[in-house]
Every structure is written in structure tokens, then in C-alpha cells.
Nucleic acid binder design. Structure first.
Lengths: 235, 235
DNA sequence: GCGCCTCGTATTGTTGACAATTCCCAAGGA
DNA sequence: TCCTTGGGAATTGTCAACAATACGAGGCGC
């Protein structure tokens, strides 16, 4: 990573330094990671005793983390019957991406309206980096995965709407990752996604808010269609 | 309420029969109500000991409820420093209504595409009831408040997207109510809102999805502007 | 053989006590 | 007068034991 790109990256990503994290917070993050990673498969039952022992905490903080995870929609809790990792079907995929397409479209529009020249340069640098990486290991799903999220995170941040950013990054992206993990990627898709990102970036940097919104919506809708196709193949 | 309107209402509102509610769940609802109602004013510190005593539970379930409330954005939690009722400024209002306008627009579009004739009749009956009520006690803020939410709830439900409905009803409306409660209403506004609802309803029932989306967006945006104006006056 | 009831077990829900951290305030010095 | 600094009280974070509920195996009657 070039040094100027590093400061660019810092411009786009914000570090929440939470200093003294409580046990419940830490466990929440660990379980979230485990679910999104696929380590805890969908519909897996999460016993409190087992989890508590695994993460080295008591059941008190653990239950708090579980409540928080329930709020994020990563687990479902049946009273007196424990919690299970959420299991999302095709309907959930469509509904999630419908919401995402609209909200990311909004984020894109706002970003285009509010972006500064410095931020535009940073966003372009981010994409340039993605292009280089992708050129090196072409077709590798995981990086494009990561890089794709980087871009969407950046747009969410550039919307300069805290609520929208929180909604997208905290509530929606983790669920999105669940699908990504399940189905993987079609060979040609990462390239196409990168092209989409380039065009969206261009529109945003030129403050063409209407075009930016439209392109982003289509981009997300295309991703949804691709995932659906993969899902049908896989099943 | 006429009997046919009653079955109409049942068509639009769904009862979640949660049988055996746990203490944490009950306390969560009670505190939520207290916050939305304004009983717990913004920025009020919520001590665990005090709350636990008030609701007759131990601090364990109470803390779980607090975590859940934090997830909904109704309280903010500083580690080792307790939780406070969220305090929303003008920026929060704009951001919240920006998201709402988009999401309710989406809901309206989906509702228009998917509404059945029976559901259309039910929605019209709901609005007719609102019209009657409003005719009786004209200008009364609270009812229109309640009625307004009824309508928006109905639209969210008619979108037939579970995720969207949950997002709107569970995550966004409670926050919206916070603002409503703070600022009250301008005298002429309820009437105007009702007119908006009528037109939106008509578009939805005729399956004119584009128009329905547009009207709903404008409706929400108008509400935002009104609240901003009230807020400036009040301050 | 099949269905139903009963009891035991495992798991969740809840509690009160203990540990750790923060905040407040008062005393001391520059 | 203001800033620093220490101590103490209050509050949050954590734990392990207790109570209540749901699940499943086994036995009984039909």
C-alpha cells in the first residue's frame, strides 16, 4: 500500500477506539465473527453453557451478547428454548437486497452531493488499489469480497449520515455476508462488480447524485440476482 | 368501530402472541414505552438499581433489556458509566426522516404491487375510520398521531416484506415517536396528513406503485420539514 | 403395536453477592 | 484562585448458585 493511499484509507474508515471493552462486548464480536465466517453454521443451536465455557465468561455477559445478536438478526431466540443461528432462505435474500438497494442508493446520492475533493481522491485511490489487487490475483473470490465491502463501507461513510451508515454497516452488511459465504462467487462476477464500482465512483466524484444512486441500485440488484442464481444451482 | 372495520383492522395488524414472556422482555417493553411516551425524558440517566427496583426484577434481566434497548437506539450506553436515554438533535431528525422517506417509499411501492382487493378494501376502511374520527375531534393531535401511525403500520405490513416491516415498525417508528412527542403538532397539519394518506391509499389500491412511492416520500419529507419548523419555533 | 401420561434430566431464566471501575469531593500545594 | 491528587462512595461488570421451564425416555393402558 502506498503511503498516500494509507492516509486516504484513514480518511474513509473510522476507528472506534473503545478502550475498555466489557466481556459482553467482546463475546458479542467473537460470536458475530463466528457466525459471519460460517464457523457457526445456520440453524446451529447455541447452548449457553457451551458458549460460556468456550469464551471463558460466565453466562451473565454471554446472555447480554446473545440479546445484542438477536437485535442484529444474527440469531433467533425462542423463549425457554435457547438461541439458534439464523437461517435465511431465498425470500430473506430478496427482502434484504431490496432494502439494501434502496438504502445504498440513498447513501450514494448523499455521498455524491457531499463529497469533497480530498475525499474523492481518497475514494479513487481505494478503487485503484482494488484494481491492482484484482489484477494480481484475478478471480479470487475472497479478496474481491473484502474489497467490495471496503467500497460499500466507504460509500456509507461518505453519505455523512450517521444513521444511514450505522444501519448499513452494522445491521445489513453482516447479514449480507452470511449469503456471500454460503454461495461463493461466479467466476466472472468480481470483474463486473469492480467495473460497477468504477462507474459508481466516477459518478460520485463528479457529484452526479442521480446517476450515482441509479448505478448503485442496479449494482446491488445485480448482486442479488447473481446470488439467487448461485443458490438455485447449489441447491 | 363497525364490525366490518374490525375484521379489516385484523387483516392489517398482526398479533404476536408471545405466551410466556420473560422478565427481560417485559421490562424491555415497559422501558421502551416509558421512553417513547416521554416519561423518561431525553438524556435521563437510567441507573440499574433504581430501574430494577421499579420494575420488580433483578439486575440480570434488566441489563438484558438495556442491551436490547441499546440495539434499538433508544438508549446509549457508555461502558462503566451507565445508560442514558438517547438525545436526538436536528441532525438526527433529518437523517432519520431521510431513511424513513426512502424505506416507506419502498414499502409503498411494494404494497401497491402486491395488494389484494380484500386488503385494499381493508385499507380504505381504515382510512374512512380515521376520517370519521378526525371529523369528530378535529385538530386533536394525539389521535391523529395514533391514526397516522396506524396507516404507516398498515403500509409497512402490506409491503409483505418481513424485513422491511420489522425495520420500519421496530427500529424506526419508536425513534420517530420521540420527535413527535417532543414537538407536538401544528394546527393545520393533521388535516393535511390525512389528505396525503387518502391520496397514497388511492394510489396503492390502484396498484400505481410509482405514484404511491412518490407520494409517500413527499409525505414523509413534509412531516420532516414540519417538525423542523416546530423545533425551531420551540427553541 | 400405538398413543398418552409421568417423571427425570438438561437447559434457560433469575437472583443476590462479589469484584472492578468510575465519579465526586475535599484537602493540599503552587 | 486554580490545579492536582488522593480517598471513599456509588455504580457497573461479573460470577456462581437457585428456581422454573421445556425436552425426551420410559412405562402404562388400550
Amino acid at each position: 500500500m502506498a503511503p498516500d493511499d494509507r492516509v486516504a484509507a484513514r480518511l474513509l474508515t473510522q476507528q472506534q477506539s473503545a478502550e475498555h471493552k466489557t466481556h459482553a462486548d467482546r463475546v458479542f464480536e467473537e460470536i458475530e465473527r463466528a457466525i459471519v465466517t460460517g464457523e457457526f453454521a445456520a440453524d446451529t443451536r447455541l447452548g449457553e453453557e457451551t458458549l460460556a465455557e468456550r469464551f471463558g465468561v460466565s453466562r451473565g455477559p454471554l446472555r447480554e451478547a446473545l440479546r445484542q445478536l438477536e437485535g442484529r438478526g444474527l440469531v433467533v431466540r425462542l423463549p425457554h428454548a435457547g438461541v439458534r443461528v439464523v437461517s435465511l432462505g431465498n425470500t430473506d435474500l430478496v427482502e434484504l437486497y431490496e432494502v439494501r438497494a434502496n438504502l445504498e442508493g440513498l447513501a450514494c446520492r448523499l455521498a455524491a452531493q457531499r463529497i469533497s475533493t480530498a475525499e474523492a481522491a481518497a475514494l479513487e485511490a481505494l478503487l485503484r488499489r482494488h484494481g491492482d489487487e484484482e489484477g494480481v490475483r484475478t478471480g479470487t473470490a475472497y479478496f474481491q469480497e473484502h474489497g467490495s465491502f471496503d467500497f460499500h463501507f466507504a460509500i456509507a461513510r461518505l453519505s455523512k449520515s450517521r444513521r444511514l451508515e450505522k444501519l448499513l454497516c452494522d445491521d445489513l452488511y453482516s447479514l449480507t455476508r452470511l449469503f456471500r459465504f454460503r454461495t461463493g462467487h461466479k467466476p466472472g462476477r468480481p470483474r463486473q462488480a469492480y467495473e460497477d464500482h468504477l462507474r459508481i465512483c466516477e459518478a460520485v466524484c463528479r457529484s452526479d447524485s442521480e446517476l450515482a444512486e441509479l448505478l448503485m441500485r442496479r449494482h446491488v440488484e445485480a448482486a442479488c440476482r447473481e446470488l439467487q442464481a448461485m443458490d438455485l444451482e447449489g441447491a
